[in-house]
């Protein structure tokens, strides 16, 4: 059955609006992975073009943002394959050192940081603030750490694939992933849960 032109135009227009609204998120995630403005812009542009070309295949089972991120994931995996662009720069070994976390623990490896209790964000307003803080924390990760972390958590590559693409040893990949998660936990604790007071974090978020 043929769609009426009116319906199709309306759908196309709403998809266009949705894509524009997601552009910032797509760009920020692409940048975390690619660490290069132009490459990230290109990946987002290709993703949106591919989404439009394939819009008939979008069934609405997931949100448009989820669908676009899935396309972006494939685009970036392809680009890492084509250009062998995953290899990490020097300085990677320094990032793999977990000495930064010494202050969190006593000499015997017991927790030395102040005790704190977290709860997950509740409701749209808290969630929006929570994800803003998380996003900022991810953007603060050092380059090699962020790229390996994103290969694992966003591209969902396994450790051997990461070692191959990033040209790192399994030990370094493991250390960088550990560093990323410990840093993010620390950052989220400081920026969002400090003192266990979510309200204070929200106020800070508003006035920042």
């Amino acid at each position: 059955m043929l769609e009426s032109p009116t319906t199709r135009d309306a759908d196309t227009e709403s998809l266009h609006d949705e894509c524009e609204r997601c552009r910032t998120t797509l760009y920020r995630i692409a940048l975390l992975q690619l660490r290069d403005h132009d490459a990230a812009e290109d990946a987002v542009q290709e993703t949106l073009v591919a989404a439009f070309a394939g819009r008939a295949g979008f069934r609405g089972q997931s949100s448009i943002k989820t669908w676009l991120l899935a396309i972006l994931r494939f685009k970036i995996i392809d680009s890492l394959r084509e250009r062998a662009a995953g290899a990490l720069s020097r300085g990677m070994a320094a990032e793999a050192d977990d000495g930064d976390f010494d202050a969190l623990f006593d000499d015997d490896g017991s927790w030395a940081e102040p005790k704190s209790h977290w709860r997950g964000p509740e409701g749209d307003y808290e969630e929006i603030e929570f994800f803003r803080v998380l996003e900022t924390c991810m953007e603060r990760l050092p380059e090699a750490t962020a790229r390996v972390f994103m290969m694992r958590e966003f591209l969902e590559l396994d450790t051997p694939e990461i070692c191959e693409r990033a040209q790192v040893s399994a030990g370094n990949a493991r250390a960088l992933l550990y560093r990323a998660r410990m840093s993010l936990r620390l950052c989220l604790g400081k920026s969002w849960y400090e003192g266990g007071d979510v309200a204070a974090a929200r106020t800070r978020g508003r006035t920042r």
Binding site: C22, T25, I29, S62, S63, K65, T66, W67, L68, L69, S116, W118, R119, G120, D124, E127, I128, F130, F131, L134, E135, M138, E153, F154, R181, L184, R185, L188, G189
Partner: peptide, 19 residues
């Protein structure tokens, strides 16, 4: 528990499951 909140947040953020 903190890691679980973090991991769930990362998954949701990277899969577009955010408000």
């Amino acid at each position: 528990e903190q890691f679980e909140i973090l991991f769930r947040g990362i998954e949701r953020y990277l899969h577009g499951d955010t408000p």
